[in-house]
Amino acid sequence: MPTYVTAEADTSELPKVVAEGPPKPSLNLSGSPVKRSRIGDLPMRVIYRILAVVTAVVVAAVAAVAGLMYSGSSDQPGEEASGPIAAPSAATPSPGVGSPGPSPSGSASPSLSPSPSPTVSAARAPGRSAAVVAALSDPRVPGMPRGKRLARLPGKEHKAKLRLQDAKSGVSLARLARPWKTYGAPPFSTKQVLPKVKGGVTRAMFVSCPVPIKVQDTPEETALLAARWTLNHHPKGSTIAWTASQPVEDGWLLAYRVKYKIKAKARFSMAAVVVTEVPGAARPAMVFVTIPDAQRAYWRDINTAVASVRLR
């Protein structure tokens, strides 16, 4: 029988497979682990968003700095940024009485200035006295009226057969028929009135006296101041609207509508004032008549009253 000889081959041990653990972090000189950046681990869309936000912040900061630099001298409240100063006109007129001052912006363009009102224009006219300027600056009084004759007012004409003598003023005037009657004169020289209207505040009257205001250079201006003074005998807040302005013998006549309110209701009176020079008298004579709308049936008596003024 054959004999089998078992041969043992040279064998060596297989290397052991050992699973390695996670890499140990690097240590710095102090022994603490070195921190590594995680940017590389971020998705690209996140990086783009971060860059967009940073860009927006930078742009806003630049705009804010530019705005501060542009504002310059206008950083005070209520101030405007200074601009180029316009050269003054070669012949700038000096402002007269009642004329507006220079524009705050220094502009010389007349289109930027409001057109003056009639009252201001009249007040700025050369030769006006301080009293006339004050009267024309009064919001109750419009500008100097243009020439216009007194029209025949509505109502029944009452012919006056008698006359009153005003020794203080140096004139005579009609004594109006009933229901007009003479009344206590002060502060006037003569006074005639109509009976009071029930519930009325104003009263019709026809009076005369030396002018109670400063005499002006012309009868027209004296009449203007006299008409303004007569507002003292109308309700508070009354205003004037001219209806006539005409010369009379040695004087001037102004007629006007006096507007006011009584218990919040608009009312008015028709009125007229005559100023006339009296030879040898220290002051001109003034004749004043006013009749409220509640007694409009007697408005024609205004024509009779002003036409009756005569030197004594």
Rank of each mutant, 00 (worst) to 15 (best):
K198N: 10
K198L: 08
A177D: 12
A204D: 08
K161W: 02
A167G: 11
V197M: 04
E157K: 14
V201A: 04
H158G: 14
R178M: 12
R203C: 01
S169Y: 13
K191R: 15
K159L: 06
S208T: 04
P212Y: 03
T202Y: 01
V201N: 12
E157W: 02
M205F: 15
T202P: 01
K156E: 11
L194A: 11
Y183W: 09
R203I: 14
T190E: 10
P210N: 06
I213F: 01
K168Q: 13
K168F: 06
A185K: 05
A160L: 02
K198A: 15
V201F: 10
R163A: 03
L162N: 05
V197T: 06
Q192P: 13
T190C: 05
K196C: 01
V201E: 11
A177S: 14
S172I: 12
V193Q: 09
V207I: 11
M205I: 12
V171R: 07
G200A: 07
V193Y: 02
P179K: 11
P212A: 03
C209E: 15
P212M: 04
P195R: 02
S208P: 02
V201K: 10
T202D: 02
G199H: 03
K156Y: 00
W180M: 05
H158I: 11
T202W: 01
P212L: 01
R178G: 14
K196D: 13
K161R: 04
G184N: 07
H158Q: 08
S172G: 04
V171C: 02
V201Q: 07
P212R: 07
H158W: 06
V211M: 00
V211G: 08
K161S: 14
S208H: 01
R178A: 15
K159P: 10
K161D: 10
R178V: 07
L162Q: 10
V211H: 02
A177P: 05
